[in-house]
């Protein structure tokens, strides 16, 4: 039984082994999430805890060119305690980040 729990036969098994671990999720729209994986299903709907979301966007400050460059360098990020993520936006899920 324990052996069966640890084998990786299909891609989603890799995600199963990441349960309760910190994962990296890349999403459509230049979005990235880092957080603890608490639940997922076959669509890659997920619930993450202590999530940091980073959105990389080039914002425009109409006036001058310099301002555009400045805005594009600063990534905006925020923390959310618990987040449900709809699977259709998921590009990749990467197993625990060990630092």
């Amino acid at each position: 039984m324990a052996e069966e729990e640890n084998t990786v036969r299909e891609p989603l098994d890799l995600i199963r082994l990441s349960l309760d671990e910190k994962v990296y999720v890349k999403l459509k729209g230049e979005r990235e999430l880092r957080g603890k994986l608490h639940a997922y299903d076959q669509h890659l709907n997920m619930i993450l805890g202590d999530v940091e979301e980073t959105v990389t966007s080039v914002e425009i400050d109409e006036e001058t060119f310099e301002e555009i460059i400045k805005a594009s360098e600063g990534d905006s990020s925020r923390m959310v305690p618990y987040l449900f993520v709809r699977g259709d936006g998921v590009i990749l899920v990467s197993p625990p980040l060990r630092s």
């Binding site: 199963r16 619930i47 305690p81 618990y82 709809r86």
Partner: peptide, 24 residues
């Protein structure tokens, strides 16, 4: 829907883990 922010008090982490393993 992209995200739903969940109320922290109503997330039972252990329950979710068990349900996810059962579903998998």
């Amino acid at each position: 829907v992209r995200y739903v922010q969940l109320p922290p008090g109503s997330v039972d982490v252990e329950l979710l883990h068990d349900a996810t393993r059962r579903e998998a």
